[in-house]
Amino acid sequence: MVKSTVTPLFWRGGLAVVVGVVSLVCPGVTLEAFVVAFSVYALVVAGIDVMRAFSRDRVVAVGGRLLLAALSLAAAFGPVTWPEVTALVLTVCVSAWALVSGVVEVALFFRYGERAGERATWLLSGLVSVLLGTVLAARPGAGAVTLVSVFGVFSVLHGAFVLIASAGIRRAPYATRRLARSH
């Protein structure tokens, strides 16, 4: 079970570090990628809602699905049409995400049965998330490029903490066996 937990944790941390470095080195490209990725996602959701609307036999379901498709279509073209508003909304969404995930990670610090190092890692990672969310909530109009830079720093720090946690979990079975053999 430990190996099945460690590998995804390792890849999650590594990916966070890579995304953070790319965000810091190329903030403009990262911002454009966020906008394009969201637009593509909303366009795909609109297409799926249209297909689902016509797979129903009730008129109410068709109308509701077509309404959802229209909203998704508007969401797909909104970021391209109004990039400033998109940047502000993106900043608020990332702020909320960072605050909530940070609070959850800090709460994981108080779990019983975890090693001190792992608990400290959750605490530090959670505090970094809460700090990111607080900074973004305080100044959401500061701009999306600033968000990308702060997101880059957050991703590198968060990824590093996750990599440290995965290394600690990976070493735990070996340390336990070594300790058992010594007694």
Rank of each mutant, 00 (worst) to 15 (best):
L163Q: 12
S149H: 10
T5C: 09
S55N: 08
L73A: 15
A180K: 04
S95D: 04
A87T: 08
A175L: 14
V6R: 03
S72H: 12
G143W: 00
H183P: 00
V100S: 11
F38Y: 14
G20W: 08
A96D: 03
V35T: 09
A61M: 12
L123G: 07
H183S: 13
A137S: 15
P83T: 11
V45C: 04
A160Y: 07
A138T: 09
L127E: 03
A61K: 14
V94T: 10
G152Q: 04
W122T: 01
F109R: 09
F77P: 01
T121K: 01
R58V: 12
L90P: 00
S72I: 01
L9I: 01
R58Y: 03
G159P: 10
V135G: 09
L43T: 09
L9K: 04
G102P: 04
R181P: 00
A138M: 06
V106F: 03
G117L: 13
S95E: 03
G102F: 06
T30V: 03
A33V: 14
E105A: 14
Y112E: 13
F110A: 10
G64E: 14
G28C: 02
V22K: 02
L15T: 12
A33W: 11
D49Y: 13
A75I: 02
T121G: 11
G168E: 12
A76C: 08
A107Y: 04
A75K: 02
Y41R: 11
G168T: 05
A175D: 12
V44N: 02
M51L: 14
S129I: 04
A46S: 13
V21Q: 05
V80R: 14
S129V: 01
G64Y: 06
A76T: 07
L147V: 09
V104N: 02
G63M: 14
T5A: 15
D49L: 12
T30I: 00
V59S: 08
L179V: 07
C26K: 11
V156H: 08
I164P: 00
A120V: 13
A137T: 15
D49E: 15
A138K: 04
R171A: 14
V40W: 01
P140G: 06
L68N: 07
V62Q: 12
R115N: 00
